[in-house]
């Protein structure tokens, strides 16, 4: 490789690539706002990967463009290029660098995953009764060696549990989430509230127990960076702390039929006092909206009706909305 540029040029390019990559990594603006404690962890990780990715992208694409221009065949030149068949140190270098990068990213992944609570799904307080619900299957119990801790059984819950510092501590609020074609039903076991939207207090440790009634759905709140499939026959859960009051979309992310795209609702993150007011008002007005929440099939709504709840959120005027529907 005789064409290696002068050290000074290399240094300049290196500094420029580093600066541009860092700037892109922390200013890409590609992610929605951060509304959960977990979203901060995920975004920091993603930004680091964007920095590394941008640097690699610039170097490799730069080399490709440079080669295409500098080493293009000139008119009338029918000779061959230099017979270079390899360069062991160089090949070892570009095998080792990605290897080191991915090992680093692997370790970082495990760290973030642990901080998000990825290692502790199904980690419940014994008095919550979940384990009892898990164990009536006699054959399953038989597989567990005598004297084994009952927690072993609870491990068949998938998803995200308590973050590390809260391991073994029950969530502040539990909500049962049921996915069906094409709606989410939220049930609050403590108060008996049933709703088509998820209401949670800000800064509370919330645990969603997710199930599916017909086909696989997937509960996703982009602003929380959390997603978990709702799987018929399997228990899954998501535990999160919302850090910012507001209204965020709940999206079904797993193909569940013709109106999969319309299987959307919202999560409303309240201040603690607002949340108490909401709970009181829901208990006071009893259940009329429950039936409504279940009975309303998005497929039966016109697009205007369906999209109306989003109008406020996205600052869309109703006329345009009506126009779009036609």
């Amino acid at each position: 490789m005789k064409q290696i540029p002068a050290p000074l040029l290399t240094l300049t390019i290196g500094v420029a690539v580093t600066l541009v990559s860092l700037w892109v990594g922390f200013n890409h603006g590609l992610l929605p706002e951060q509304a959960s404690a977990q979203s901060v962890l995920v975004d920091d990780f993603f930004d680091v990967m964007v920095v590394i990715g941008t640097a690699l992208f610039l170097v490799v694409e730069g080399a490709i463009v440079y080669c295409t221009i500098a080493f293009r065949r000139r008119e009338g030149d029918d000779t061959d290029g230099l017979p270079i068949e390899g360069n062991l140190p160089l090949e070892a270098f570009w095998t080792a660098i990605p290897a080191i990068i991915v090992i680093g990213l692997g370790i970082y992944s495990v760290q973030v995953f642990q901080d998000m609570g990825g290692f502790t799904p199904g980690d419940r307080m014994p008095d919550h009764g979940t384990m009892i619900a898990q164990s009536p299957d006699a054959s399953l119990s038989g597989l567990v060696p005598a004297g084994a801790e009952p927690e072993l059984l609870a491990k068949s819950v998938y998803g995200f549990g308590a973050p590390l510092e809260k391991e073994g501590i029950a969530a502040d609020l539990e909500v049962n989430v049921s996915g069906m074609q094409y709606a989410w039903i939220f049930t609050y076991p403590d108060s008996g509230i049933v709703d088509g939207e998820l209401h949670v207090p800000v800064n509370a440790d919330v645990q969603l127990n997710i199930s599916a009634q017909d086909v696989i759905h997937s509960f996703w709140v982009p602003q929380f960076r959390l997603k978990q499939d709702a799987i018929p026959g399997k228990d899954t859960e998501l535990r999160f702390v919302a850090i910012k009051p507001g209204t965020y979309p709940v999206v079904c992310a797993e193909l569940c039929g013709g109106y999969h795209g319309a299987m959307r609702t919202q999560v409303i993150v309240h201040s603690p006092s607002e949340y108490q007011n909401w709970v009181q008002s829901r208990i006071a007005q009893a259940e009329p909206t429950t039936a409504e929440a279940i009975a309303t099939n998005p497929a039966d709504l016109t697009d205007t009706e369906y999209l109306a709840p989003y109008a406020a959120e996205i600052d869309f005027d109703a006329q345009l909305l009506a126009h779009l529907a036609h």
């Binding site: 490789m1 064409q3 490799v60 080399a63 490709i64 080669c67 295409t68 080493f71 293009r72 065949r73 000139r74 030149d77 000779t79 061959d80 290029g81 230099l82 270079i84 360069n87 160089l90 090949e91 570009w94 095998t95 990605p98 290897a99 991915v102 090992i103 990213l105 692997g106 992944s109």
Partner: peptide
């Protein structure tokens, strides 16, 4: 993540093949 290492090796090798060539 490990799969990206051999894939990267290929990409780098092709770019190095271009380097110093008489590219048509």
């Amino acid at each position: 993540l490990i799969v990206s290492v051999p894939t990267g090796v290929k990409i780098f090798s092709w770019v190095a093949t271009l380097w110093g060539g008489k590219i048509r």
